[in-house]
């Protein structure tokens, strides 16, 4: 089984979000980038398929050279090879188009992406990719088993979960639950040394045009100060929630 894991290069969850160039560009100054958490759960599940079922695992990112350390980290966690499609990721549709080319050229059976990236939160790349390559698709995936050509997956739904059966080729939008937090791997020294020697190929992008474009960013209006209510005066809280906030 050939697995491709899509790796989005995103600001660490604790990052302060600022913008430059008249609020049109994300300010990467002082920002630490990491593997998108949803993708890391998927990568870890892929490592399990590699170790237990002999799968091969490649990772891919659509982005500029600055994303390579993130791909190297995925190699250090255990992926076999990495591919970087050399074009900035500016639109979900265009990214999905680039990934579709990589999947077609590489003949992958299973693609594991994250249900969404934590920077643009579009939640669209895996589904668009599945539609473009005519593969089956399960998102919000919290459980995945593969047996030959068949797959069983669990999808988180509003208020519960559903179990589905399907077959390869398959695209997954993964999240926590695909593996547990405690299963995540911190690359060790040996992994990091080996990752330096693993192939990271840079491919030029296919023709694809964006369907959306960000005109400007803004930050939420600053919040007023919290109103503190004395622990002995709970009636006051109920009064505020009823008469002022009007939420009860």
């Amino acid at each position: 089984m050939k697995i491709l894991v899509c790796i989005s290069h995103v600001p660490d969850t604790t990052s302060k979000i600022n913008f430059t160039e008249n609020d049109t560009k994300f300010d990467t100054n002082g920002v630490q980038f990491v593997i998108n958490p949803n993708d890391e759960f998927g990568l870890t599940r892929a490592m399990w398929f590699k170790e237990k079922q002999g799968a091969s695992v490649d990772v891919v990112n659509v982005g500029g050279p600055e994303t390579e350390p993130t791909l190297r980290k995925a190699l250090a966690i255990g992926a076999d090879t990495a591919i970087r499609v050399n074009t900035p990721a500016t639109d979900g549709f265009a990214v999905a188009k680039q990934l579709a080319e990589v999947v077609k050229n590489g003949g992958y059976d299973l693609v594991i992406a994250g249900r969404e990236s934590i920077d643009y939160n579009g939640g669209m790349v895996p589904g668009m990719l599945a539609a473009m390559i005519d593969a089956n698709f399960v998102t919000n995936c919290i459980g995945l088993e593969i047996d030959g050509n068949s797959a069983n997956a669990v999808r988180e739904i509003d208020g519960g979960k559903e179990t589905v059966s399907t077959s390869l080729p398959l695209v997954i939008g993964g999240q926590k639950g695909l593996v547990e937090e405690s299963d995540l791997r911190i690359p060790n020294m040996r992994g990091i040394m080996m990752a330096r020697k693993k192939p990271l190929s840079v491919v030029e992008p296919a023709a694809a045009s964006d369907e959306t474009s960000v005109q400007s960013f803004e930050k939420p209006a600053p919040k007023g100060a919290v109103k503190l209510v004395d622990a002995e005066n709970i009636d006051e809280l109920i009064n505020l929630l009823h008469n002022e906030a009007k939420v009860i």
Binding site: V214, Q215, E218, P220
Partner: peptide
């Protein structure tokens, strides 16, 4: 943050 996004 918010992003003002054009659909083309």
């Amino acid at each position: 943050a918010f992003a003002n996004t054009e659909i083309t």
